[in-house]
Design a protein around this nucleic acid. Structure first.
Lengths: 192, 192
DNA sequence: CCTAGAAGTCACCAACTGATGACATGGCCC
DNA sequence: GGGCCATGTCATCAGTTGGTGACTTCTAGG
């Protein structure tokens, strides 16, 4: 009656753990914390949902661990300072959404409304986004300028997530990009 | 055994309907679509949850109807054009969060990640935010400038929601406000 | 070979969600 | 005042969620 208990996955705890983390990262970025069930993550990984509780303690802890190894602001900061605005604006407005670059943003935006995830997001985004950004910016008003950059970047991402760009055509996105680049560079080169 | 069936609420369908809408609006703005249960809304109203299904068809339709009578962009547009940036920046950065002004934003930000709510948000925010804003802005590139304004306003609101301003002190918020005002006015007075 | 423990699976639970149909009740009209 | 329909309540359902402990199976070490 039962050929079940098919192992399928080679027994390797470390690999399984990272596979779960990977699947969870994608799910959380795509669907957000609430919309993602442990069963889905497990299914993506090809594993039973119980393993998530066993390895991470629960969905909440899994989310925290996903955050802690998600790509951070560093992606945006490498490159020369003068082209920062142009580079980021391109990614924000004209290039096809590069999920891997914006994964941290996407996770934040789509999960911030969940109380369980909010605290982890606050902490992590402060450590992995604001702090490095402030340091990179330098100067007395670095905190304010970091916030300004964050507003524009998050707002642009949010808009893109909501409207999926069906509101703007290519030409308009180009104009949008140029304006965003100017604004961003203005904040980078500050002082305010 | 039973003093139950306490009516408590005077029998008035229209009043009850609007009371439910009111309660739902606050809940959706505070907690977001997913985090809000029909039982909570009903309890706030002092009514049984079944009434929500009866009056609105279901939670989803209730959300759509809440959106359709939520405050819209008009709140921000009244007043003279020159002081737009200053006014809005004040509300975004220094004044204590005025929930009633930002309710539409809050609902959008906290509910956008829910697929059930997303479509209603897209449609409504287009009609009640972008269209009026574009008309108010005028000019060829009104659509782009509207998007730019939206990025800054949504980004600022999002940041405020996430961090609750515990990252910036009063002085910094003042600086933030001035920079936001300049950026906003820059977009308003366009062309880009 | 064979046993001990790690790795993974299964069955199940308790809580919660939105929804529905049967029931009670209050107020209006004749 | 009596009946009737709108108004509101209750009990309950079916689905989903995250989580847990007992079970099976694989593999390493003796």
């Amino acid at each position: 009656m039962s050929p079940p208990m098919t192992p399928a996955r080679t027994r390797n705890a470390a690999a399984t753990r990272t596979a779960i983390l990977e699947a969870a990262r994608k799910r959380f970025a795509h669907e957000g914390y609430d919309q993602t069930g442990v069963r889905e993550i497990a299914s993506d990984t090809g594993v039973d949902a119980a393993l998530i509780s066993r390895y991470f303690g629960g969905k909440e802890e899994l989310f925290a661990e996903v955050l802690s190894c998600a790509p951070n602001i560093a992606e945006f900061l490498e490159g020369d300072r003068e082209s920062f605005g142009e580079r980021v604006a391109q990614m924000l407005a004209v290039e096809p959404m590069r999920e891997e670059k914006f994964e941290l943003f996407l996770i934040m935006l789509r999960s911030a409304s969940s109380p369980k995830a909010a605290e982890a997001i606050r902490r992590h985004s402060h450590d992995a986004f604001y702090q490095p950004l402030e340091t990179w910016l330098g100067g007395d008003d670095a905190a304010v300028r970091a916030r300004l950059l964050s507003c524009v970047m998050m707002g642009a991402t949010m808009n893109r997530v909501i409207y999926e760009d069906y509101l703007l055509d290519g030409q308009q996105r180009q104009e949008l990009c140029e304006a965003l680049a100017r604004t961003l560079d203005n904040y980078v080169s500050g002082p305010v």
